[in-house]
Design a protein around this nucleic acid. Structure first.
Length: 374
RNA sequence: GCGGAAUUGGUGAAGUGGUUAACACGCCGGAUUGUGGCUCCGGUAUGCAUGGGUUCGAUCCCCAUAUUUCGCC
């Protein structure tokens, strides 16, 4: 195992934890926000730029790399790190989310999931064994179990059956897992139901993994209350010495509330997707640089921000680039938005050290969402 | 100078003698949470070159004017 994790401190007033990931002689602190690079690249950014933002783990995706260029080619390149020139830790998602986003429910069977290849229409079967085998070959540092990610609004009965199958898939995946350098995480499902989250967590822990993910959140426009319940009902039953990862979570308030409930890792496409659509995250909320009011705003997105975009460019210029669909605009905003979320986790860690995370949350929320929030 | 054609929003345009003038782009907003990147959803001409006329009713028919354009001298 190339990666090690230790909890350094637990906050007194909340379940928040401060942790350390040791990797290749370097220490990365948690809670951490992990940028997403589905196709072996964080869209528009170079590894150097990602590291400059103080990023740690980045994500990549099994399903997409399986289709293109194929895990064998990545393996021949010397693994994902060499292939994409990133020497920090890499986590691969299993393709489980693509079950949710690309496959029909009727194509989910005990064996696995029948996909229609979105590139050429071919029928493809992805199984727990296949997903793990691909991830072994990609040689990421953390692999995910292949799970079904049902919508939060699915019935209790459906969720129960889905969880039972996901647990069987997790067992099969663990048996198929051969890469000793690579951690393998189990995934907890169960919507906002306490009994299902508990069942899913306990059964997954029984199999035994190097870390645990909370899945099936923020996929169905469920309420924030339900999302936070899903966090809480999951972490309540997870071992304290293992990493906990909320999959796909990246709205600032959701990260803070997740940390309060004992979660260490977060990933989200939102900073890069918002960037491509012209939005910037700021302490005072999300702004849309397409808005006409920024036409002659020759100030940076944020004067407090230490990112490359804020140090060198104005809102008016970035707006112009976005309006012209110049890729440099998406790049500058991606740099800013990812740096914003990483900076958020840095401030969260400071607050945990001072046992003042709840106060930090209240101040952050007031400024970000305004007085009328909740 | 003579003859023909055209003139619809910021742009390219469709269209009809009779309720809300199609569509596209642009513009103005909004959305986006384990990424099928460049998507989705709203709004955007009280108006059809100008002035007259015919008609119950005209952007659509007629006349004049203006502008553009083509051909001929």
């Amino acid at each position: 195992m190339k990666l090690d994790f230790k909890v350094k401190k637990e906050e007194t007033k909340t379940k928040a934890r401060l942790g350390e990931i040791l990797y290749n002689g370097k220490v990365y602190e948690t809670p951490m926000f992990m940028p997403v690079g589905t196709q072996a690249t964080v869209k528009t950014l170079s590894p150097e730029e990602i590291k400059e933002m103080n990023a740690g783990i980045i994500l990549s995706n099994t399903y997409h790399l399986w289709l293109r260029p194929g895990e064998t080619i990545v393996s021949h390149a010397g693994g994902l790190h060499k292939f994409m020139n990133y020497d920090g830790p890499i986590l691969t998602d299993s393709g489980g989310f693509q079950v949710f986003s690309l496959a029909n429910p009727k194509d989910i069977t005990e064996e696995g999931v029948l996909f229609k290849n979105h590139l050429n229409g071919d029928k493809l079967l992805l199984t727990p064994e296949k997903s793990i085998e691909i991830q072994n070959k990609l040689d990421s540092d953390i692999a995910m179990s292949f799970d079904e990610c049902p919508p939060a609004s699915a019935s209790h009965e459906y969720l129960r059956q889905s969880i039972e199958r996901t647990i069987r898939w997790a067992e099969r995946g663990k048996k198929a897992h051969k890469n000793e350098n690579q951690m393998l995480f189990g995934i907890v499902q169960g919507g906002a139901h306490e009994d299902l989250r508990k069942f899913s967590a306990l059964e997954t822990v029984k199999i035994g993994f190097d870390g645990y993910s909370i899945g099936g959140v923020a996929n169905d426009h469920e309420s924030k209350e339900d999302m936070y319940k899903a966090f809480e009902y999951s972490t309540n039953y997870l071992p304290k010495d293992k990493l906990r990862y909320a999959m796909g979570i990246g709205e600032p308030i959701d990260i803070i509330e997740g940390v309060i409930r004992g979660i260490d890792l977060f990933d989200c496409v939102s900073p890069t997707r918002l960037a491509r659509h012209g939005h910037a995250l700021t302490k005072s909320g999300k702004i849309n640089l397409k808005n006409a009011k920024y036409k002659e705003d020759f100030t940076p997105i944020s004067s407090e921000c230490d990112c490359y975009a804020c140090k060198h460019y104005t809102k008016a210029y970035i707006k112009h680039l976005i309006n012209c669909e110049e890729t440099f605009g998406a790049r500058l905003l991606s740099i800013h938005n990812i740096r914003f979320l990483i900076n958020l986790t840095e401030e969260i860690r400071e607050a945990i050290k001072k046992d003042s995370l709840l106060e930090y949350r209240d101040i952050f929320v007031k400024k970000y969402y305004g007085d009328d929030y909740e």
